[in-house]
Design a protein around this nucleic acid. Structure first.
Lengths: 210, 210, 210, 210
DNA sequence: AATGAATGAGTTTTCATTCAT
DNA sequence: AATGAATGAAAACTCATTCAT
């Protein structure tokens, strides 16, 4: 009714705002209750729109979840690129990777939880969604291991595929525990990141000491 | 069939069988669809019993899940104890821990998935269940790190609490990927176990090379 | 198993006992929860028998209720006859009627509640049961009114049919309130009986004062 | 149709209509089958709405029954006040009370049955509902008895508490019989009301004739 | 006769989705 | 475009009744 007069139509601006509000609310509710237990009406309330409005922006509940996957992972990938740019050394880039991962987590804990838990189950109850973006995100690390091996810094026996999942799993589990822990019990995320990276890097190094 | 003479009534044997069949079916269905999406009627069909029969053995759907958590983790803990018994060296015990973990996974992949995914969400929508048994299972590893530090094998800078979660996350994520991958694409679990343990152990060692 | 050796067969005595125990338990449970909410398993537990046993004595739940109606009303009618026997004067018999009614109530409150509440609704959800015995029980009072009119004690304008229901309703409601009231709040039933009878008799008398 | 200009949205009028239709249908179905046997789907069909719609207006089945109790008893109390207003003499007011009671009954027989039967059981299976409004309705009569005693019209020996329940029970039982009787067998309610009032009033009078 | 485990029809309630306004 | 009331399919759970032991 009282839309800003400067804009034409219900305004692309407004439309985008509303869409974003729905996505943000959905992330929060999905994180709180899990996809299956989340109610559309909760998301609508969180976004300050009517239930039916959500269906003007998304085909259905599943589409809403998939859109979150796609758009948030897209942004995550972009931001990861930025975080690693400027660093050349594979080991430096791995450290930056871990710090970036935990920074995202601390900044958007609800989103982190949705991506971790729901994305992981996606193939299970969403007909046949393939989380390509997640795989890209992970393959960045795998490439770093390859690069490290190429430069002789990382031991040739290391299997990049296996280590990729192990590293991701380690970061992920720590994320989850950090999110689940009560605020006052929370360990220091930065130190945790350093620990994990130290252990992994030392473990993979091609040092004479081995 | 093989009714023991010590048992009376419609046979404790039969009764236990039916209970086990329900639990097994539930594990399978929970693994396939997730707790919320699993239907009691699916579990009943899987167990070869009527829907109502499930309620003779379990108070409700949630009780069924919690029972799985408790009983299976109980057994897991016992078996872990057996697997580590006889080994003295903390590093050997860590290797055995990882091999045990992956062995369970390969033997009971559906159970592994339920324990991993649903336990992760447990505090969220199960009233306020605390997965004590899981914590015990993990603390075994934490103790091994402590022991390794006491014996001087593991570097004193390592934080056992952080490494515990990192290690568990690594094992877990590999488990998940192994389960999710199509049979023909599956990597070799034993080699993966060795890789992970090698990386972690090397990463934590108190070698002069550091 | 260990039935008394003096009796043959599972003994008619035992059988009757068990049947009575079921009826008594049913009366109690029906009184507590109402027919629809009463569970067969509650009745079985109350009677100390297995659920299935009830079906050896009664066709189904409805048959159990109907049997209670029939048998208990039968006995009530007999006992009412005894209570009134020896009294000639219609007014005396009316007083005795009221006292008898309340005496039953105090002695068998659960039964009273079942007969009052469930019998009243009987035609509603039991296919087409007609509570003949209840009608007989009431018609005894109606006859007394007729007799009183014949003897000139009761005013001819009184409609025995209407007064019968009014009188029964009065007794019934007081019964219900007495049963529902907490024990310590209970009014004196005997005095209540006298009050009601006094009011009704005075109200129906063919005195010159009218 | 006749949308008042003061109302907005899908019209408060329409909304109230639907709520009323649900209540009316519920009264009918509860009267026919009793609360426990009544099915939500029957009520929905009776109201011409979908099953789920009922839950937009009432929390659950019990809330629907309790709402009927509260709202209908509220109205009954108001209307009783109107019916007695203008009459000063306690005896006149008692007659008006009885006539009012029967008038309601004839006008809303289904409602009468619900209030009578279900309210009677209310404390039993509805959590711990206390039918305050019913007690108010009855206490009006108790006050009339007191007033009659104060004015010397009613004998001092009469216990207003006892007589209240007796009178209510008498009206109630006649109501019930009138409702249960087939239409062609129905006695004349007005004459019945007069009979009952006559008997009670005469029975309670403080005449010299006593 | 007695048992009580098993059955499955039946009922309440929830909630994603639609559509008239 | 937005709303939110209405829908009705779906699913957990109950319990009278059966029947193998």
């Amino acid at each position: 009714m009282a839309e800003s007069a400067t804009q034409s139509s219900p305004s692309a601006q407004t439309r985008q705002d509303k869409r974003d509000r729905i996505i943000d609310a959905a992330v929060q509710v999905f994180a709180d209750k899990g996809y299956r237990s989340a109610r559309i009406s909760d998301i609508a309330r969180g976004a300050g729109v009517a239930d039916g409005t959500i269906y003007l922006y998304f085909r259905n509940k599943e589409d809403l979840l998939l859109t979150i996957f796609e758009e948030k992972m897209e942004k995550l990938l972009d931001d990861l690129g930025d975080a690693l740019s400027g660093l050349q050394d594979p080991l430096d880039r791995m450290r930056a990777y871990a710090r970036f991962h935990f920074l995202q987590l601390r900044t958007y804990p609800a989103l982190a939880q949705v991506l971790q838990v729901e994305l992981r189950q996606s193939t299970r109850f969403l007909h046949d969604y393939r989380p390509e973006k997640l795989w890209q995100y992970l393959s960045v690390f795998e490439q770093l291991v390859h690069a490290g091996q190429a430069s002789g810094q990382i031991h040739g026996d290391v299997d990049p595929f296996i280590v990729k999942w192990a590293f991701f799993g380690a970061l992920d589990e720590l994320s989850m525990q950090w999110v689940l822990s009560r605020k006052r019990d929370r360990f220091n995320l930065d130190q945790a990141a350093d620990q994990v990276v130290d252990v992994f890097l030392r473990g993979m190094l091609a040092t004479s000491a081995r």
